[in-house]
Design a protein around this nucleic acid. Structure first.
Lengths: 252, 252
DNA sequence: GCTTGACCCTCACGCAGCGGGAGGCGGGAG
DNA sequence: CTCCCGCCTCCCGCTGCGTGAGGGTCAAGC
């Protein structure tokens, strides 16, 4: 069974030009040609093109793909296996990016300023030694700097004010609940935790129970977030953390 | 607080040249310059660069990023929100690709040939009508074609033979179990299901319980896979499916 | 006050990975 | 025999930087 460039292009969702290019640079030479010079692709070519597409999707340069594919030491299965790993890695990285976005959004709502490193942390590993030491000199006394910048955030719009009002209203009711002595895993605390989750969903993004517990853990893990809640009411970070977890468990 | 190009470049994990480029094309103009002409970046520039990096990671061209960022109708939060959605979408797509890879690997182990469309299905939506009708003419009578190609697979190597032997051994024992009249959710069936999972892990990729049940469902959903198991022993596809599910539930 | 080394500046050319068009041949349907 | 679509081979253009060349700058140390 042989296919023309156009057929292959449509099936593989690439342009004819791309196939020409791959032919030119020797990455994917069609199995043969017709007397008139038309390219004829066979099954083996499709196999190869499939692998090429996956490697491209993963960001490999064409030359490197050619090397990988022409390596006699790796059979077709090895490629699939490898791509499986690479894809899993990519997914993990993207999930980190999602977490970073959530972190950034949460920081904004509370008016907390992130350090330059934190903003870009997710974009790659860099020498942690270099970081730990240089950070102090390069970005100044970060803690003091943060304090000064805190709540200086980047507000905008009118919605923003309503959002803030709703948040503060929720905060007052939450503090009142704590003062009442109600348990953190009781129905009232869980109700307010749920309301918190829905406030996030309403104003920011679709906050699942999983994401919500992730945020809750950050509230007690990241000192700046902890500090924020502790200023509202001592013990609030831990109390809120427990309430969110209790809520997530019973609702999910 | 102002930063030099070098500082920003290190923090954001881009090159100085890239920042120069962004300045040139107007995508990211530094907040100011020193008397000597040195670029000085401020916090707002870092904010913007962070967004740029995320959009780039998502494959947006620079010009489009500029448009998006300079759109007065979308505040900073809207960007984060948007990126959150886009990232989630990307993750979903990659997960489909992983599933496709697993599908391809499984097809290979059983010597089943995929159609050209199936190979590239994951790379984008295309008109399903066009597909359903044209597929028949363009790729020939697919069912007959598949039959003829079945088991003509792409074998290689020596490991391959050992793998095959182990698989067949497992198959014999599984058929024997079925003949014994043991229930599909009984301990022996679950033990063989577990062994199946570990064979995949040993020879192909790390097969979690989740992936395993996904495969099991494919065995009864995709007629070609069903056919394969049914030739070994009528009723085997459904029986194996149940065993795998039972195993996954009790072990996980 | 002078050197040194790390950092900054502005051109300017180059390269990958195609996009897109020009100009021309091939082939099957009518 | 003609029409039209699909194929062919140049070839120029674009994006997103990499990589110097050639030359100023600034903080540190002597």
């Amino acid at each position: 069974m042989a296919y023309t460039v156009g057929q292959v292009a449509r099936a593989a969702r690439v342009t004819v030009r791309t196939l020409h290019h791959y032919d030119e640079i020797g990455l994917l030479r069609p199995g043969g040609r017709t007397p008139a010079g038309y390219r004829r692709y066979d099954e083996a070519d499709l196999d190869r093109l499939q692998l090429i597409r996956y490697y491209r999707e993963l960001g490999f340069p064409l030359e490197e793909i050619a090397e990988i594919l022409d390596d006699p030491d790796s059979d077709p299965v090895a490629h699939l296996r490898r791509q499986h790993e690479l894809l899993s890695g990519r997914i993990g990285k993207l999930q980190e990016m999602v977490a970073a976005i959530e972190h950034a959004m949460e920081a904004r709502t509370l008016g907390i300023q992130l350090t330059p490193e934190e903003r870009f942390e997710v974009f790659g590993d860099f020498d942690p030694d270099e970081h730990a030491e240089e950070a102090e000199q390069r970005w100044g006394d970060t803690e003091a700097y943060r304090q000064s910048q805190e709540r200086a955030g980047h507000y905008s719009k009118e919605d923003w004010l309503r959002n803030k009002a709703e948040n503060e209203d929720w905060g007052r009711r939450f503090v009142a609940l704590m003062d009442s002595g109600a348990p953190a895993d009781g129905p009232e605390a869980m109700a307010l935790a749920e309301e918190h989750r829905q406030l996030i969903t309403k104003w920011w993004y679709d906050c699942s129970y999983e994401i919500h517990t992730g945020l809750a853990d950050m509230y007690v893990a990241d000192p700046r977030f902890t500090a924020y809640f502790e200023t509202l009411r001592p013990g609030m970070a831990a109390y809120l953390n427990e309430a969110i977890h209790a809520n997530a468990i019973t609702r999910a």
